[in-house]
Write a protein that binds this DNA or RNA. Sequence first.
DNA 1: GACATACTTTAGAACTATTATAAACTTTAA
DNA 2: TTAAAGTTTATAATAGTTCTAAAGTATGTC
Lengths: 137, 137
Amino acid sequence: MKKTSILNKLRSSGLRPTKQRVEIAKFLYSRDKTFHFTVESLGKYLAKKTTTKFALATIYNTVHAFKKAGHLSEVHLRGKNNTTYFDTNISNHHHFYDSQTSELIDINENEIKFDKIPKSPNGKTIKNIEVIINLKN
Amino acid sequence: MKKTSILNKLRSSGLRPTKQRVEIAKFLYSRDKTFHFTVESLGKYLAKKTTTKFALATIYNTVHAFKKAGHLSEVHLRGKNNTTYFDTNISNHHHFYDSQTSELIDINENEIKFDKIPKSPNGKTIKNIEVIINLKN
DNA sequence: GACATACTTTAGAACTATTATAAACTTTAA
DNA sequence: TTAAAGTTTATAATAGTTCTAAAGTATGTC
Ligand SMILES: [Mn+2]
Ligand SMILES: [Mn+2]
Ligand SMILES: [Zn+2]
Ligand SMILES: [Zn+2]
């Protein structure tokens, strides 16, 4: 993703393109594959790959702002150290989870098909379905 | 579940039947339906239903001991307030999740059937599959 | 460019779920 | 009854996350 489209992405979401946001967006969206991360891991990557300083609160703020703007999703999974995973794949999709490495791998929505699903309880409807396939070696 | 089988359950797991463990086991296993709870909520229920005192650490210890003994399972879901859910249903099964109320509802394993599942990556095999059906009103 | 305004970053404090510590207490088996 | 091992407890420590309020920055207008 190039600089101008990064700026557009931010501006069209009502987010001022600050140095920190632009760096984070470049880091997250200049890649082909889905990227799964925790705030802590993102901070480490940013420290390694950029010379910009990021307060931890800024990473939290930015990740939440991106999520609110629809540019990130939060994975509804409780990882090893009570960690929250974020995901650059914002479509409905599923995951392999390797608890040994704490790694998530995407499964496209169309790679899982259901034969049978229970009907939702008492006046509720289905918002979405999340499948986690836990892996072992 | 009656007193003697509570004691058997504890003893056969190598857990001494202390006052606190017996109360918690009675509370958790003297019911027909699955019970989902957080440590905090369990503490509140115990305070309401019993006259025994429970240090918070004891509830954590006991829940973990029961989990280790195979009498409880932990739900791999990140709830609203970063809460950990435990489950008296120790079989492989799935859940409805109502994020409005933070409530879990069991789905038996045989109520969900897959038509298509991706093959696991690179030398890994499937340990188990967890489905969360998120509900809305 | 200079200015006013609203927004953003920041360091540090605060908060909350959970785990660790170590002393007092209880269960168990001899 | 006694000693050893296990358990509970209050409290401190940890760790992920959110809050605060002061300093800094982006933006629109002149
Ligand atoms: Mn650096
Ligand atoms: Mn009471
Ligand atoms: Zn994903
Ligand atoms: Zn359940």
